[in-house]
């Protein structure tokens, strides 16, 4: 019997790991990113970035401003003063500043809602994507992205990152493969600082995709401790009842 259980465990265990594997467009592997929702300063910096840059075009229309304030320890006053661009009500959902119809006319497509992006694509994808814009004179915006080829989005943060060119190499089958980036013009931020900012933004977007994540781990620990105690008591009760059954 126990053998069977072990076989079952062995059969299912590797499958669990494989499901998560994800490539990043032309990049073979997404860059790892440290997601830490306990790092409140990082979440706050990410929120500021998100509100100032992303929210101009993208919406986060399942999230409310005041919820964000409460969760990240930003007072309602500060939220109202500094973060409300598209509305004047702090209880509103976070819609984009740019009207959808205009966006469609300007970019050819409406920018997607970003509330759940971290759950749909994963934090590694977002982190890699944000850092993979490169100059491409053939594209309408002048920018392209190795993680999301021919994306309509321009490199919004190019002043910080500067501009880079992508080097593609042809393999023996004649297919172009992304090799590496070459800095063309350095930005105002050193690369390390830019990566750090993008990590903050990614971290924030993980929170944005599931605010309950802030509390669910903490509650989970107590629930499991309770259940473990209950398990022991139930087992002792069972033993007491069953002692005369042979």
């Amino acid at each position: 019997m126990k053998k069977l259980l072990v076989v079952f465990a062995l059969l299912t265990a590797p499958a669990l790991g494989w499901a998560n594997e994800g490539a990043c467009g032309q990049v073979a592997k997404c860059d790892p990113v440290k997601v830490d929702l306990n790092d409140k300063p990082s979440l706050q910096r990410g929120a500021r970035l998100f509100m100032n840059y992303c929210l101009s075009c993208h919406s986060a229309s399942y999230m409310r401003y005041n919820r964000l304030g409460q969760d990240l320890g930003i007072s309602e006053e500060l939220v109202e003063k500094n973060l409300l661009f598209a509305t004047d009500k702090v209880g509103d959902l976070m819609s984009a500043v740019m009207p959808k119809a205009d966006a469609r006319a300007w970019f050819g497509t409406a920018p997607p809602d970003l509330t759940l992006e971290a759950r749909a694509r994963g934090p590694e994808w977002i982190y890699t994507y944000l850092r993979s814009f490169y100059r491409d004179d053939k594209s309408p915006s002048g920018w392209n992205n190795t993680v999301f080829p021919n994306v309509a989005m321009p490199h919004v943060l190019y002043e910080w990152q500067g501009s880079q060119r992508a080097v593609f190499k042809k393999n023996d089958k004649g297919m172009a493969h992304f090799e590496k980036f070459e800095v063309e013009k350095p930005g105002t931020m050193p690369p390390k600082e830019f990566d750090q900012s993008m990590r903050d933004l990614t971290n924030f977007m993980v929170y944005l995709a599931e605010p309950a994540k802030l509390e669910r781990y903490k509650i989970g620990v107590y629930v499991i401790i309770f259940l473990a105690v209950f398990f022991v008591l139930a087992y002792l009760l069972k033993k007491e009842y069953w002692k005369d059954i042979h």
């Binding site: 259940l227 398990f231 139930a234 087992y235 009760l237 069972k238 069953w242």
Partner: peptide
């Protein structure tokens, strides 16, 4: 009682 252990 035994199933209670299982449930836990």
């Amino acid at each position: 009682v035994k199933d209670t252990v299982g449930v836990a």
